[in-house]
Nucleic acid binder design. Structure first.
Length: 293
DNA sequence: CGGTACGCCTGAAGGC
DNA sequence: TGCCTTCAGGCGTACC
């Protein structure tokens, strides 16, 4: 399930296949998959344009054309890009909803880039201008790789909701999903049910550092492949091997050897260590003393 | 405000 | 073996 590290890995692997190249044509195989318009045209999806950048904020990608048009892309749960030499090479691959036919202007070399998404939780959304893209992204919080205690702290208040729920809210910060929320909270030694607005300054600083280091390490590892995540070149990520809590409910904590607990928080399966992620001297939950400002 | 539930989807995995 | 149920979850939305 692509979160920031996986999306960044996709961005990096997709870039050489698209940036600097011209879109010679777009095959819209499932028009209903294209967001924001009933009858999408190839021109909506950068046909005739030259791609100048692949941008990312949080879990969103955007291919930006020289004309200023853009296409916003979200991988949802199972979205992936498939690069092949020609459309014939995509035959037999199910759930390919859009195919971009690209050409390298200098050499005339061609490739096709397909967007495949079995579950269709992903999104391909045309943006008529850079402003439209900026507007769409303005609702997102700061990219999780850029947060500081100064930018994150105020966004957690006022907050009686669980810190885990706040981290999953893309308006608070962009890019964290279920896996990295659990991993970051473990590294920060914060219980997932702690109230977001009740964290002390040092705890916010710890959380910030944990989020950034967990995401950076995952990017270095090419992301986490659980079932079928692969980048545009078909490569898997290896960060799954380094998950300390995600997917390990009932197993032993790598730090203290205790049993990891799992439960539902914000409608997401969550795993945490009841020993390590407990306030010193506290009961694991906010108690209205000590850390309040 | 926050929490809960649901719908969108398919495929993997588990149970019998 | 094969069928059926459950689960996975990003995100928007409705409702309490």
């Amino acid at each position: 399930m692509p979160e920031l590290p996986e999306v960044e890995q996709v961005r990096r692997s997709l870039r050489p296949h698209l940036v600097g190249r011209v879109i010679r044509g777009v095959e819209i195989r499932r028009p209903g998959f294209i967001a924001g318009t009933d009858r999408p045209t190839p021109a909506d999806l950068l046909a005739g344009d030259r791609v100048v950048a692949i941008e990312r904020v949080g879990k969103f990608l955007a291919a930006v054309g020289a004309s200023g048009r853009a296409v916003q892309l979200h991988l949802g749960m199972t979205g992936r890009f498939i690069v092949r030499a020609s459309v014939e090479d995509l035959a037999g691959i199910e759930h390919v909803h859009v195919v971009w036919k690209v050409e390298e202007p200098a050499s005339g070399a061609r490739e096709v880039v397909g967007f495949c998404d079995p579950r269709r939780f992903g999104e391909v959304r045309p943006c008529a201008s850079a402003d439209a893209l900026r507007e769409a992204w303005s609702r997102l919080g700061p990219d999780a790789l850029t947060i500081t205690p100064e930018t994150l702290g105020p966004r957690l208040r006022p907050g009686r909701r669980a810190i885990k729920a706040a981290l999953l809210d893309q308006r608070v910060l962009a890019g964290v999903g279920n896996i990295y929320a659990d991993e970051a909270l473990f590294d920060a030694r914060l219980g997932p049910r702690r109230h977001a607005g009740g964290l002390s300054g040092p705890e916010i600083a710890r959380l910030c550092g944990a989020i950034r280091s967990v995401l950076a390490s995952a990017i270095d590892a090419g992301g986490s492949t659980l079932r079928d995540f692969v980048d545009a070149d078909g490569a898997e990520g290896s960060y799954r091997d380094r998950h300390k809590v995600y997917g390990r409910g009932g197993e032993t904590c790598v730090v203290c050897g205790g049993v990891l607990r799992s439960g539902l928080i914000a409608q997401r399966t969550s795993v945490w260590c009841p020993v390590c992620q407990q306030r010193p001297g506290g009961g694991g939950r906010a108690r209205g003393r000590g850390a309040m400002p």
